[in-house]
Computed example of a mutant assay.
Amino acid sequence: MLPGALQAARALAATRLLEAADLADTLEVLHRDPVTNAFVATRVEAVGLDPWRLGGEMWGWFDQDGRLESLCYAGANLVPINANPQAVRAFAERARRQGRRCSSIVGPAGPTAQLWALLERSWGPAREVRGHQPLMAATEPATEVAPDPLVRRVRRDELDLLMPACVAMFTEEVGISPLAGDGGLLYQARVGELVGTGRSFARISEQGEVLFKAEIGAVAEGACQIQGVWVAPAHRGKRLSESGMAAVLEIALREVAPVVSLYVNDYNLPARAAYHRVGFREVGAFMSVLF
């Protein structure tokens, strides 16, 4: 066996599919960094490790003493978690052998870059690589920006008003429409879930136009994550994102979690400046590989 193949085989041997009996150890790894891991932790805390309910597999990497040290969520996204270089090699080999089933690789910038470097030859080319996406967090309400009093939870009967704004946001952010493929059934179900659980917020005019929106898309032990921030194009430049985010941040800190996070594309300088004014500070960086 060639040295590279031997190394890959050894790395792969240290990984396996995690099962219900591994739940406590999995949560321990996730809770080491609740801000970074909020996206995956919220799913595991809600449904456990059953692949059907989780929407994907959870792979584990074990050290020489048999302790679970690293994770990789393999669903619609491939997400390395607390992944050291040995774990990254193991996850890459497992992913390569399985073949690409995800629409993106996303996670902490360092491990994600290493993972993509190992997978690019067999999985590439990517549609887009976003190499540096600042991860930002806040633990206090905004002090320099007054919360918008008109930002509120979206009601169930307003889902039809909200959907066009959600589709516009997704298309701008990801570069493809969420209505492709299944006609948007899964995406509409996700938006409906967020509305139904009281985690979707918007400023809606008297004429029924969504001027600002955002969702608390992930809620895990110790932290939550704001996603889907969007301002109607005709109303951009009026600082609605600042006052709107100040309102959502205040609610999230009061009702959901002691730490509120988000991540943003590094080239989106207006958004980064707005989040800084609201009180968010950079605590790390993500990377996304989009297919």
Rank of each mutant, 00 (worst) to 15 (best):
Y187V: 00
M169R: 08
R127A: 13
P125N: 06
G237R: 05
A223P: 04
T15Q: 07
P233T: 04
D25C: 08
R16C: 07
Q114S: 14
L17C: 11
T197K: 11
W52E: 15
A20K: 15
R152S: 04
Q207C: 09
N265L: 14
L161D: 00
M163F: 13
Q188A: 08
S103F: 15
D266I: 07
A13C: 07
S243V: 05
L249I: 05
L249P: 02
A46I: 09
A5M: 10
A246F: 13
H132G: 02
W52Y: 10
R239V: 06
G284E: 00
P147M: 08
L240P: 01
F286I: 02
V260W: 14
R130C: 06
G237V: 03
R277H: 09
A223F: 13
A285Y: 11
P147W: 15
Q114Y: 11
N84H: 15
L269N: 03
G184V: 03
G99H: 11
E250K: 13
L18Q: 03
A8L: 10
V259D: 04
R190M: 13
E193M: 12
V29P: 07
V264F: 11
L23D: 04
G237H: 08
C102H: 13
K213E: 01
S103N: 12
G184M: 07
L18H: 08
D22V: 10
R10H: 10
I176Q: 13
T42D: 15
A146M: 12
A11E: 02
A252R: 07
P270I: 05
G183H: 08
R236T: 00
Y73W: 14
G244Y: 11
R254C: 01
P258K: 06
N84P: 04
V264A: 07
G56S: 09
F286T: 00
G124Q: 01
M1N: 02
V47K: 09
V79L: 06
L211G: 03
R94Y: 09
R43E: 08
C102A: 15
Q98I: 08
L119G: 02
A138V: 08
G279K: 05
W59H: 10
E93G: 03
E158P: 01
Q227M: 06
P85H: 04
L23G: 05
A180K: 11
G124V: 05
L290Q: 09
E209F: 10
K213M: 01
F39V: 09
V44S: 05
R43L: 13
C72I: 01
D25N: 12
G56K: 12
A13W: 13
D160K: 13
A21H: 14
G110Q: 15
D148W: 13
E193N: 10
L186M: 11
C72V: 03
A138C: 09
E221N: 11
S200P: 05
L118V: 00
M169Q: 12
E144A: 15
A109M: 14
V264I: 15
G196T: 04
A274K: 06
V264E: 03
F91G: 01
R254A: 15
E128T: 11
R155T: 02
W123T: 00
T139C: 10
